[in-house]
Amino acid sequence: MSKISPLSNSHELGIHGNCKNKDQAKLLAIREITNIKIYQLSKFKKSNFDINNFSLDSYKLPTESGLSTGNENLRIQWQAPNVWMILSHNNNIIQEIERQCEDDDFAITDLSHSRAILEVKGKDALNIIKKGSPLNLNNFRKNNCANSVYHGITVSIDMVNDDPITFNIMALRSFAGSFHHAITDASLEFGFNAI
């Protein structure tokens, strides 16, 4: 069975918007992130498990609100007290998670097919988010994440890199069409390259 990505019908590749007389190499780049495993890890209240003993590729679970960690292939986001989201391009990551997490300590939910993710990269990426979200991004740095709203759609925003500025923005798959439209519509005035 072939996989159909959430934005396969919406995300038209190519140059869009106001990009006249602009260096195409420096244009805002928008990419759908596909073929990624997404797991929600929720620690039970009664559990005494020390989360410092848990790590994936040597990355530990962030213990403070608004923090994320990881690299290009793995992101671990703090979602709520004792709740984390793990995104990985490793198809076998669940085996590593289950090896370290007992059923009595954690609820693990596979959300891989229920989210649409857009990567927005470029110096205008901050402005794209500011145009649709009330989140205060003044102190937002690399490896910061937050759940917020974007034009009324609940999204999870993760700053993956600060040079170049790169955000992963994740929304429910059922909102994928509106979410993609909101992001690309906000990007038109800057011009963007859909890759």
Binding site: S65, G66, A80, P134, L135, N136, N147, S148, V149
Partner: peptide, 11 residues
């Protein structure tokens, strides 16, 4: 109490 100051839109 968990996330800090946020807009009323999120609540």
């Amino acid at each position: 109490p968990y996330c800090g100051n946020r807009s009323q839109n999120e609540f």
